[in-house]
Design a protein around this nucleic acid. Structure first.
Lengths: 242, 242
DNA sequence: AAGTGGTCTAGACCACCAC
DNA sequence: TGGTGGTCTAGACCACTTT
């Protein structure tokens, strides 16, 4: 019981048990959780493990802790919706909005990179890049137009495989590259000529352009993307913290 | 030396020493830091403290860790600019963009709340709210138009005091309320009629509207605000993480 | 097999809060 | 003064990577 078993299993399990306790005991907002000493006995783990579990709950904004007083249930618990600060594939964003994601391919191009792409991805100008242009649909409605560019070397062949799958998942599965962070610029914009002419978008429809550079867990730039979102369909939320 | 002294001093100090070591030893990107065992000896602290320090450096995206291999210097270290996911007062945002912040007051109103405000702030419809309307300037240029609404009870008198000071700092100093988080919606928008007529804004200028609800550290909603930003002046960046 | 980071235990003292 | 969370030490075993 007290032995360390799998990686992280104990503190994660402790967190879940504390969550269950919160629900079972019908704890209200701003009421105190059991003390750390109590939780040690309840869960039969060390104080360190209890504190790890509480740290997880604090990170998820479910509780707050006050030195000398105790640990308390935070307001609006379990309503923590993901915001833009959380990096998700667009596939997942659409899913979590309650829609069914689908993709309409506009085109795949393999060519030499523009200077902008060379600068952003830090690759050799003589190395080819691959560009995906896709429309992302949420339950059939246009949600966004996405242009993703990365080194062509990531794809051994023209990928029939990605069909409707997230590029994130493809890179992790096939290339063991984990996209961890992105730096995004938010730009309000009117649709490009290409979008009006080829995609039949209204000219006076406002879009949000996310210009993004995606990095893996070691900090290497991997994907440069331009995503034009229709704010009527996808509502942009950001959880900001000091 | 080995005694716990002030709160967090040791692990924080250890972090700073590791940072200094990174600079002194001219460590390059993707090169390994000293192992945890080595750092224990170097810094004369326990492994737990070393790991706390490394966890801080990892959170700040300065290093990454790989089980079984080591801890490595991340790419683009120390280039971590703040993005929108970091909640700052607009005063501070403008400062950190390298501009000199100033404020032009448009008006202060004390009145009964609209239903939207009642719902958002969760206050009594019979309780008065105070609304600040301000233009925020960055080195003289219009950066944003801000409409902030909160319970009038936070202000004992009509505040001459806030003059050019951030509302955040006022609330902390006078009311011991620490604004910790905000939930923001990003909406691309054309200027309102009020902005065109009263403030002389161009009609075809696109704005980003941030509709925000600010919470204190215990999760209580405190400020409801509408901020219209001119994206030409303030560039919106978000650091996204999985 | 050796070395590295990941997790867990047991025990200690400190800083802050309420009584 | 006693209780609470915050930090630190010492020691152990586990999981993953490299030799």
């Amino acid at each position: 019981m007290g032995k360390p078993s799998k990686n992280g299993a104990l503190s994660h399990g402790a967190k879940e048990k504390i969550l269950a306790h919160i629900k079972n005991s019908d704890l209200r907002v701003d009421e105190a959780l059991p003390t750390e000493a109590t939780l040690m006995k309840m869960l039969e783990v060390s104080r360190h493990t209890v504190r790890e579990a509480l740290a997880l709950l604090e990170q998820e904004r479910i509780v707050y802790r006050v030195q000398g007083k105790g640990t308390f249930l935070k307001r609006r618990p379990l309503q923590i919706e993901q915001g833009l600060e959380k990096l998700e594939s667009i596939t997942d964003i659409i899913k979590s909005c309650g829609f069914i994601p689908s993709t309409r391919w506009v085109g795949i191009e393999v060519k030499f990179p523009t200077t902008k792409v060379v600068e952003q991805l830090g690759i050799d100008p003589k190395e080819r890049v691959i560009t995906f242009k896709r429309l992302r649909l949420a339950s059939g409605n246009l949600a966004s137009y996405c242009v993703d560019t990365m080194a062509a070397g990531f794809f051994d062949s023209i990928p029939q495989e990605i069909e409707d799958e997230s590029v994130f998942r493809y890179l992790q599965r096939e290339k063991n590259i984990y996209i961890q962070t992105a730096v995004s610029y938010v730009i309000p914009t009117a649709p490009t000529r290409e979008m009006v002419e080829d995609l039949g978008v209204e000219e006076d429809q406002l879009f949000i352009l996310l210009e993004q550079l995606h990095y893996d867990n070691e900090g290497r730039p991997i994907i440069y993307s331009l995503d034009y979102f229709q704010p009527d369909v996808i509502r942009f939320k950001i959880n900001r913290t000091r």
